[in-house]
């Protein structure tokens, strides 16, 4: 590693440490001091701060053209995947593509694909209070998928298992995060009752989304992973 790139790495590490050790606890403390109706603001600030290390690292690494283009393509596929399934209204396979990106290209690419994909999707369909939550949730599933792939919980040779993992992720993780957004924006009181009601109302939507992702995983995990791995090996991009 050359001296300059070492310096760049140090810079992004410093940014990450400042964010994780100082800014996030500070946001927690201020949020706690301000009281419970400020939960939405506090949580959004913390979410954006937790995304900073990923973006800082990506920027300071000076990514090559191939890397940039592959991430852009995976994001665009995530957003445009609905167009490929126009015959099936309300079928949203986004989560599955984000997870496959994480599996093939590693945690950073997975995170960027998820969060930037959601940002662009909202630019097209309209931003709202939910944007940071979607960016955070989908970024994390891309990030997590790469680790699940390393420990062989996600395995392209076992599509059924991948489908189950995809379903569980959508219902138990993404769904819960997005419903928490509704709790923070719409409920006057954060009590057990409000939380349960909103989660219960959100459950049918989450299950539909889970089924879409599970089906996509089941049918596509093998062919798409094959293609991504081929690109990775043949052209040597985004090797972890």
């Amino acid at each position: 590693m050359s001296n300059e790139s070492l310096k760049k790495d140090n810079k992004s590490l410093c940014i990450s440490l400042v964010v994780i050790l100082i800014l996030i606890p500070a946001a927690f403390a201020i949020g706690n001091y301000l009281g419970d109706r400020k939960m939405y603001i506090t949580s959004v600030v913390i979410m954006f701060l937790s995304m900073v290390p990923f973006f800082a690292n990506f920027e300071s690494r000076k990514p090559q053209a191939r890397e940039l283009v592959i991430i852009a393509i995976m994001c665009a596929l995530t957003v445009a995947s609905r167009a490929a399934l126009v015959w099936l209204p309300n079928f949203k396979p986004m989560g599955a593509i984000v997870m496959m990106t994480g599996m093939a290209f590693g945690p950073q690419a997975g995170f960027l694909t998820g969060s930037l994909g959601m940002l662009i999707s909202n630019m097209i369909f309209g931003q709202g209070p939910w944007t940071p939550w979607q960016m955070f949730a989908y970024g994390l599933i891309g990030f997590g998928a790469s680790f699940l792939y390393k420990v062989k919980i996600l395995d392209e040779k076992k599509p059924l298992k991948c489908a189950v993992v995809g379903f569980v992720t959508m219902v138990a993780f993404v769904g819960i995060i997005l419903d928490t957004c509704s709790v923070f924006t719409m409920a006057a009181y954060i009590t057990k009752e409000t939380i349960w009601t909103i989660y219960l109302f959100g459950l049918p939507v989450n299950i539909t989304q889970g089924i879409c992702v599970a089906l996509t995983m089941f049918f596509l995990v093998k062919p798409i992973m094959e293609k991504l791995m081929r690109i990775k090996i043949k052209y040597g991009v985004l090797e972890i």
């Binding site: 940039l68 283009v69 852009a72 596929l77 099936l88 052209y235």
Partner: peptide, 24 residues
């Protein structure tokens, strides 16, 4: 319909990735 949609998506991915390498 689902199977057809998946095939379209898979084909789209192939085309997009190949084009991407050329762009890069």
């Amino acid at each position: 319909k689902i199977e057809n949609g998946m095939t379209v998506l898979s084909g789209l991915a192939t085309w997009a990735l190949e084009g991407g390498i050329i762009t890069a």
